[in-house]
């Protein structure tokens, strides 16, 4: 067995083991650990979605926090105004984010590059300001989930009895598992999509829109699809995040630092345009966060400096650097020619 293949298999085996261990964390780990990892997993979902947009479709949006906020507010509206289970609110959050993404796409797709980026940010601010006027959900000061909402969520009582833990711990376990399934589902869906005809077309568009059009690829249609799908994924994640936080304010739901700067940092240091990049990025981010948490604003300065250094010296991020040096491809997206091509 060639050494590269062996090492690839080793990393895949390690990854599988890590996933299995992640599944049992709520059973064997502390509640603080569950909450910490929930944060990591939701950031990973946001980074995977942003990577699909910026890294594979060339749509460098800096307004994705709009869909996090929309997901969160939709979930709160479902619970407070419609009195439905928050889990239905998660699905509604994804749907509303996707619906709102339609007019956003119609407007922003007329622009490109930096102009597109600025337009997405402006629209995110507009969505935030509009939702801050919604008095039924607390207006500018926000609101909390009604008491006992998370404890009455579907499945919480069963988990409480099965794991023999408090309602709060059971609720945390449920949202944690949902975040884990969402992260794995997003990763799997991204892999299958990028390996498909549409995924190949999307990568062609990223490399050269004019040339893609000249071989029959419809850039607007493909970009619109990926924009809508990532908006839905981001909205679902936003709703899930705020079930655990239990309180929503316009500042928190549309946080530029939490849902934009951190997400971009994670993707950039991990490797934009590589599928394992956000996974590596979120691990590095978590370690840095834990290490530098006591240093206040210095923490953000250090993050910024690391981001700049990676962009200067490793354009494809830490995973890209590692893959280039070792030849290891964890989730290969390359399409290989049929064997006959090698024997010709």
């Amino acid at each position: 067995m060639p050494e590269t293949l062996f090492r690839t298999m080793m990393i895949r085996g390690f990854g599988l083991l890590a996933v299995l261990m992640l599944f049992v964390v709520p059973v064997i780990g502390s509640r603080a650990m569950v909450q910490d990892l929930f944060g990591v997993l939701t950031l990973l979902v946001l980074a995977l979605n942003w990577n699909l947009l910026a890294g594979f479709a060339g749509l460098v949006s800096v307004g994705q926090q709009a869909f996090v906020g929309l997901g969160a507010y939709t979930m709160f509206a479902c619970v407070i105004l419609l009195d439905v289970d928050p889990l239905w609110g998660i699905l509604a959050g994804g749907a509303v984010a996707m619906i709102v993404a339609v007019p956003v796409a119609i407007f922003t797709f007329r622009l490109s590059g930096a102009y597109f980026a600025i337009a997405t940010w402006v629209l995110a601010e507009i969505v935030r300001l509009v939702l801050a006027q919604w008095k039924a959900l607390g207006g500018g000061t926000g609101t909390s989930l009604p008491k006992g909402t998370t404890k009455d969520m579907w499945g919480v009582q069963w988990l409480k009895d099965t794991l023999d833990v408090s309602s709060s711990a059971a609720s945390d376990a449920l949202t944690y598992w949902l975040a884990l399934v969402l992260a794995l589902g997003t990763l799997a869906a991204a892999y299958v999509f990028l390996r498909s005809k549409a995924g190949l077309g999307l990568q062609a568009i990223r490399d050269n829109v004019g040339a893609a059009r000249s071989v029959g690829v419809d850039p607007t249609r493909l970009k619109a699809w990926i924009f809508l799908l990532t908006a839905a994924g981001t909205g679902v994640c936003g709703a899930l995040l705020f079930i655990q936080i239990t309180r929503v304010t316009p500042e928190a739901a549309f946080s530029v630092v939490d849902w934009k700067a951190f997400v971009i940092f994670i993707t950039v240091i991990g490797g934009v345009g590589t599928l394992p990049g956000p996974i590596v990025g979120v691990i590095v981010f978590y370690i840095l966060q834990r290490t530098l948490a006591d240093y206040g604003t210095i923490y953000l300065i250090v993050l910024g400096l690391i981001g700049i250094a990676v962009m200067l010296f490793a354009h494809r991020g830490l995973w890209g650097l590692f893959a280039d040096k070792t030849g290891i491809e964890l989730l290969p997206l390359r399409h290989l020619p049929p064997r006959s091509a090698h024997s010709s």
């Binding site: 190949l200 062609a204 399409h335 020619p337």
Partner: peptide
């Protein structure tokens, strides 16, 4: 105007 990140085959 090649698709620079894709292989010749792709």
């Amino acid at each position: 105007q090649p698709f620079t990140h894709l292989s010749v085959y792709e």
